[in-house]
Amino acid sequence: MTSPRPFDPQRALELAARTFEIEARALLGLAERQREGFPAAVQAMLECRGRVVVMGMGKSGHVGRKIAATLASTGTPAFFVHPAEASHGDLGMLIGGDVVLAISNSGEVDELAAILPAIRRLGVTIIGMTGKPGSTLARHSDHVLSCAVDQEACPLNLAPTASTTAQIALGDALAVALLDARGFREEDFARSHPGGSLGRKLLMHVRDLMRSGEAVPRVEAGASFSDVLREMTRKGLGFTALVDADGKPAGIFTDGDLRRLIERGADLRDLTAGDVMHTQPKQIPQDALAVDAAGLMEQHRITSVLAVDADGRLVGALNSNDLMRAKVI
């Protein structure tokens, strides 16, 4: 290894720009290389009765893991199998009806070439992603995807750079075509990402977060003003719901309303709940999405909403702190 040259920031920027330009050209050229192999590969994955098994060695293996993860998260069951481990038992992970997506830029990597005949004997469809249409991988494949690039971004034209970028992009293209063909929706994405922000927004309902039962501050509309204050103090949500004889919300009284009454010098002794409540309180079905409750609060500049059942009866209460704790907002 030769001694390093003095660091030149300008040269580093020039090499970065050159890398971006080469890889951008590689991606643009990739579209021109996709012919009947791409739609045939998508159709094979759509008709797959088992799983998509992704394989690759070295850098192609790292890309393969990413492709398998992207497919799995967008509606196509997939996992990665290391070719070297496959020849020592992991080939047993494959079953009839699977589709193998084998990735190799040269198409000649020994560990992958060695197991291709065994994979074919399993009756598994093989999709080869390679930069060499005449390679061993291409010859053993039912469908071939070209990931060929004119040059690597590496100044020596050796290190996999533009070629791995092309592989990643081609894997993304497969995933996008498949999710579109499957009619994959936001709700489906959320189900495979329950821990992410989208999952929380699309899977969490009001009933999952609301205070319910004795935790809901409520009094009858005819209750005394002192009963309203005691209930609001006990439950600590900064408001009390007022319900009619059927248990449906008739109004609401908040700590802000209390401050305004005191500022006006109102005589609080003879007031009833009905005298001070706001009618038509904001409410939301308990089966609504929590994100819809957040939108309702934001729209009306309030911090709490009442949750009701299908008959309109009060069953819960939800405030902005509940939504923040659940990371809905």
Rank of each mutant, 00 (worst) to 15 (best):
H82Y: 10
P83T: 00
P83L: 03
P83W: 05
P83H: 06
A84Q: 04
A84T: 15
A84N: 01
E85H: 11
A86M: 07
G89K: 12
G89A: 15
G89I: 12
G89W: 12
G89T: 13
D90F: 03
L91D: 04
M93A: 14
L94T: 03
L94E: 09
I95D: 14
G96Y: 12
G96L: 11
D98R: 06
D98M: 12
V99H: 08
V100P: 10
V100Y: 05
L101R: 07
A102T: 09
A102R: 01
I103V: 11
I103E: 01
I103S: 06
S104I: 02
S104P: 06
S106M: 10
S106Y: 04
G107C: 05
G107W: 05
G107P: 08
V109Y: 07
V109G: 04
D110N: 14
E111Y: 11
L112G: 03
L112K: 03
A113T: 15
A114W: 04
I115S: 01
L116N: 02
P117I: 14
A118F: 13
A118T: 15
I119Y: 08
I119W: 01
R120N: 09
R121S: 14
R121W: 03
G123D: 02
T125P: 02
G128I: 06
G128E: 02
M129V: 00
G131H: 00
G131W: 00
K132C: 10
K132P: 02
P133W: 01
S135E: 09
S135H: 03
S135V: 04
T136E: 08
L137H: 08
R139A: 15
S141P: 00
S141E: 08
S141K: 06
H143D: 00
H143N: 10
V144S: 06
V144C: 04
S146Y: 08
C147V: 12
C147T: 09
